[in-house]
Design a binder for these strands. Structure first.
Lengths: 200, 200
DNA sequence: TGTACATCAGTGAACGCGCGTTCACTGATGTAC
DNA sequence: TGTACATCAGTGAACGCGCGTTCACTGATGTAC
């Protein structure tokens, strides 16, 4: 008994798990919690329905972990921000604002930041999902804070910048008017940079 | 034939319809599109399942009309803003910021602004729902714009204020940390007022 | 004023379908010898 | 090196349940006389 035999290498299962999580993150982002089926997630990961419960307890848990996975498996600018926020200071923060409010991010329904794709879903979810959401928020706030002059208001300013960026993108996505959506993002970007003294 | 007999007064049906819409707006706001059942909405309105289709074609249509109903049946500050945005200028706009980011609005899961409760739901919904969402957004933007010094940037500034207010509230709702949620709203409020020159 | 009637808002049982979850099974894989 | 074996990741049929929608029916109501 014990570890007498071990038919699969230890990393095999965890690789499959990551694959499921990536599919889940993309599908949840695009379609929301309720509209995604486990069948769909597993098929997207190249597997079948039944195996899901070898990896996760239930759909709720999958959701929370999918949000958190964004921290590991995110676009490059984010990776940088997370790994070493103080390395490039204000310049990096400006890059994040630009990237966040860009057309590319707007169009990327699958891979976008989960704060944009899942805000109201998460507001109604359990504490695990909300904790994961908070971690993503904290990551972004800390990246901004590192790019601002040190001081008592730096944290507050960073939180406002997050609200402005996320709010601008979320609203852009929820309306049917392309021009207004573009204006919203441009306006949010302009005031975000101005507010931080990074641009006149 | 024709209007030979008319068993119910004309307003009877439309009053029932309004009652259904109010229940729908509250329930969608609290629970999201997919998590609300038609049975639930009808029961909340004091009716039974089957009668729903006397009033609406399907659930999608109910959703869009429920968002739009907010424009008719909204809290007082909003009513004012909509009815006569220029009447009180900057003071009214400041009141809206305060009300929007208040604890009361945060706690009111049923009656809150649909931009807060339904952003990601609407991003995935059809054009009718998105159009309704845009109307609410426009209403708020116009109220802000009327309170700002006239000029080419007034519109842009108003859009940023909407993004900041909605973003701050949406993020507050999606996290599990009460203190951080309060900080987010306070920060958004502070910078919204500052940005507009309404406060140092 | 009172009564028969036509209408249609509202009822509630039923239908179909899809989804989350379970479970007995399969078969690919690393280990022991 | 080769082979039997134990394990467990993955399979896919099945179960239960709930929800959107339909439909034949009911009964409250305003009108005509």
């Amino acid at each position: 008994m014990g570890l007498a035999t071990m038919p699969y290498l230890p990393e095999h299962k965890s690789e499959t798990r990551q694959r499921i999580l990536k599919s889940a993150r993309h599908l949840f982002n695009r379609k929301g919690f309720a509209e995604v089926t486990i069948d769909e997630v597993m098929a997207d990961a190249g597997l079948t329905r039944g195996g899901f419960y070898n990896h996760f307890d239930n759909k709720e848990q999958l959701y929370a972990e999918a949000i958190r996975q964004f921290l590991r498996d995110s676009p490059e600018a984010w990776q940088c921000a997370y790994v070493d926020p103080s390395a490039r200071g204000g310049q990096l923060a400006k890059l994040i604002v630009d990237a966040y409010l860009s057309k590319e991010h707007f169009d990327d329904r699958d891979g976008s930041c989960p704060m944009v794709g899942l805000p109201s879903d998460t507001a109604r979810a359990g504490t695990t999902a909300k904790a994961a959401y908070r971690e993503v928020l904290e990551m972004m706030a800390q990246a901004f804070e590192a790019g601002l002059p040190t001081g008592p208001s730096a944290r507050q300013q960073a939180l406002s910048l997050v609200a402005l960026c996320v709010g601008g993108m979320v609203l852009s996505r929820a309306i049917d008017d392309q021009a207004l959506a573009d204006n919203l993002r441009a306006a949010a970007r302009h005031y975000a940079l101005m507010m931080s003294g990074w641009e006149g």
